[in-house]
Design a protein around this nucleic acid. Structure first.
Lengths: 229, 229
DNA sequence: CTGCATCCGACTCGATACTG
DNA sequence: CAGTATCGAGTCGGATGCAG
């Protein structure tokens, strides 16, 4: 447990548990459907496994989750953290518009997109999307998304299948699209994003993905730069 | 600023600022109407003034508050943290029912009660309530609340006025009443709380205070002990 | 009284390597 | 796949001091 605040205030009692670094991000992952240890790790790749393990045990002791057969499951108390996480996300998307270059992790983006594929919107046959991020170091520049009607795989090495459509964009712009800061049509019009492939695929591709659940949150008139400085 | 999570996720970006110890409690105080440095201190008495100052500066840099003439004021971004704090309070009151003895700070209780006096419910003349907490060390056992129709003062030493009514209860029970875990009538019936004074005053006293804003939140059927262990 | 700055011990985090 | 072990660096928190 985090250190006590020595207050009976419910906010203080909640934060004793929840204000520790990484804790609510783990809850976010669990709310998004991840359950296994290494699945959770992919959602918090910069967290050491030691600390993840520690946090999971803390959350279990606090009654937020339980472990069953190598799967971590939210309890009702944990499920009820959804409004907290959602309120934070709404606030974050409205007031922390400026992202540092360090925040743009292509693996997290592809992982997120994979999670939010619209079931039933995909073509009936296997479709392979190649994402190319010219502004990213070679090592993580290319990503493949292998889509079949009932499965989706993210690869950071060429899986060997024929590419159906290539998406080229700066990673920053792809993230902005995903977050709802930039619309898909605007990105295409301005040239920030380029699609190469058969026209029918190019036209329907944007319908295959639901954007971030908070992409539609209305933004304030003025943004403040949340100082990474 | 807190350390970065290196994620574009809005929850992560929000938590970079908000997951640091004390930060959301300061926001809670500001949302409750406190504005001056030492007013804020009374809401977070265990926080060192150095750290409070540091956090206030961080929040100012992040655009959550501004300082004007020795008063800290929430910006629109700060005001929009209200849903976050409320969601946390609702969760806390539902799932962290067990309070440690250390959490029962009489000063915070009296301060909270003072803040939530129902305007217009008070008698027309000066009324003095003496709170006696037999389970508390002598130093902080007695508290006086001096009420006039347009003012209320908390004293930890006898202000000298005649006491209109004496409230005797274990601090834990008084806090439970305040949080909505125990009703005023139930406390009187069981003897957990005792009122001494004229009958009219004894009858109306419970109407002078609004309970904690989260006292009315429905509780889950089963509580989990949020381990202070 | 208000609003900080400095100093220092205790603790926590993060990086890396390692085990069943 | 699912975690543990170890250790240096950084941060928190409390005491103390000091300007306006």
């Amino acid at each position: 447990m985090g250190a006590s605040y020595y207050q009976f205030c419910p906010v203080a009692k909640a934060m004793e548990l929840l204000d520790e670094r990484w804790t609510l991000l783990i809850v976010r992952e669990l709310l998004s459907g991840s359950g296994r240890f290494n699945e959770l790790r992919r959602g918090v790749p910069r967290m050491s496994p030691t600390l993840l393990s520690k946090r999971l045990n803390q959350l279990a002791r606090a009654g937020v989750l339980t472990k069953k057969d190598d799967r971590y499951i939210l309890t009702p108390a944990g499920e009820e953290l959804r409004p907290v996480v959602e309120a934070l996300a709404v606030w974050g998307v409205r007031w922390i518009g400026e992202l540092g270059d360090q925040d743009l992790d292509p693996q997290l983006l592809l992982w997120d997109m994979r999670r939010n594929i619209v079931p039933g919107a995909l073509p009936a046959h296997r479709t392979v999307i190649l994402f190319a991020f010219p502004d990213v170091p070679a090592r993580t520049r290319h990503w493949w998304l292998v889509l079949t009607p009932d499965n989706a795989d993210v690869c950071d090495t060429d899986p060997g299948f024929e590419v159906s459509v290539t998406v080229t964009a700066d990673l920053r712009d792809m993230v902005r699209i995903w977050r709802g800061d930039l619309s898909w049509p605007d990105a295409l019009r301005s040239g920030a994003l380029d699609l190469q492939g058969p026209e029918t695929v190019r036209r329907t591709l944007p319908t295959w993905f639901a954007l971030s659940p908070f992409a539609a949150v209305p933004r304030p008139a003025i943004h403040h730069v949340g100082g990474n400085s």
